[in-house]
Computed example of a mutant assay.
Amino acid sequence: MDVLRTELPGIGVRFEMETKRGVRLSIVAHREGRRDFVVYDPDDPDSTLECIVLDSDEASSIGELLGGARIIEKINSLHKEIDNLVSRKLTVDAASPYAGRTLGDTKARTRTGASVVAIIHGDQVTTQPTPATSLNVGDKLVTIGTSESVDAVDRILRGEI
């Protein structure tokens, strides 16, 4: 999909695109963090049908949800290309020694070779979590690696290794 980027002096940046179904839309990223999601009238390209204004927190949440879905989609496509690659959602339960601690405390990647590519906390998705990302009871860690390495991350979360 082609995205046209236009600088808006004093305002921010507009990103404009057309979907495969012919819907033209844009996102105006204001300097202060606000985002305007605009859907244009197909019969009059200079008129809008809808403008949804999102504050920076709302825009961030939607971005994380969409970004997380895209990462999962890409991981699933990799499964077809690499025979021994798996991805699983691992849960941090109340008995985990890492509940209330950070992802870095698990040293999961160093110890197993598997990668945690996203963390799902309720309806929030954190893509590309850092070692400082907190782990909470009920969080789901989207983990990718070999079957053995993902199993090892699960055992780490349960405090078995």
Rank of each mutant, 00 (worst) to 15 (best):
D154P: 04
Q124A: 13
N84C: 02
I144F: 07
P129E: 10
R35S: 00
S115A: 07
R35M: 06
V23G: 08
K107W: 06
G138M: 07
F37Q: 00
V28S: 01
V23W: 03
V38M: 04
G33V: 09
G10H: 05
E73R: 14
Y40L: 08
S149R: 02
T19Y: 05
N136D: 11
K80Q: 12
L103H: 06
T106L: 07
V137L: 04
D55C: 12
L141K: 01
L4H: 14
I71M: 10
V153A: 07
T127C: 05
L103N: 04
I75R: 11
N76G: 06
D36F: 08
T48W: 12
D93K: 04
G67H: 04
M1V: 12
G104E: 08
A69Q: 11
I82R: 10
G33R: 03
R101W: 05
G68I: 06
R101E: 02
I75Q: 08
N84R: 12
H79T: 06
G12F: 01
F15A: 02
R21G: 13
T130P: 06
S134N: 13
Q124V: 08
R155G: 03
A118D: 04
D41M: 12
D139K: 04
E7P: 11
E18K: 10
E81K: 13
E7H: 07
E32C: 02
Q128K: 07
L65M: 15
K140R: 13
A95L: 07
T91G: 03
G12Y: 03
P45M: 10
G12V: 04
D43G: 02
P9A: 10
I27K: 05
L49G: 03
I71E: 02
E32K: 03
L157I: 14
R14C: 08
A29M: 12
H121R: 15
G10E: 06
V125T: 04
F37D: 00
D2G: 13
V137R: 05
R21E: 14
A29P: 09
A95T: 14
E58H: 10
I52K: 11
T91E: 15
C51V: 15
Y98R: 09
V92H: 03
A94N: 08
A99P: 05
T106D: 05
R34F: 07
L85R: 01
E50R: 14
I82K: 07
A95M: 07
L141R: 01
A99K: 02
R70Q: 14
G113C: 03
G68E: 01
L4K: 15
D105S: 12
T112Y: 04
G122I: 10
H79M: 11
A114Y: 00
A29V: 14
A114H: 01
L157R: 00
G63T: 11
S115N: 09
R158S: 03
A108E: 10
T127I: 14
G100T: 02
N84V: 10
E50Y: 11
A114T: 05
T112K: 02
H30Q: 06
E58F: 01
N76Y: 12
A108K: 08
L135H: 00
L65I: 15
D139N: 06
E32I: 00
L8V: 12
T48L: 11
V116C: 10
T6L: 15
K140V: 01
D44L: 01
L65C: 09
T133P: 01
D93V: 08
G63R: 00
E18T: 15
A29T: 05
L78G: 13
V92Q: 02
I82E: 12
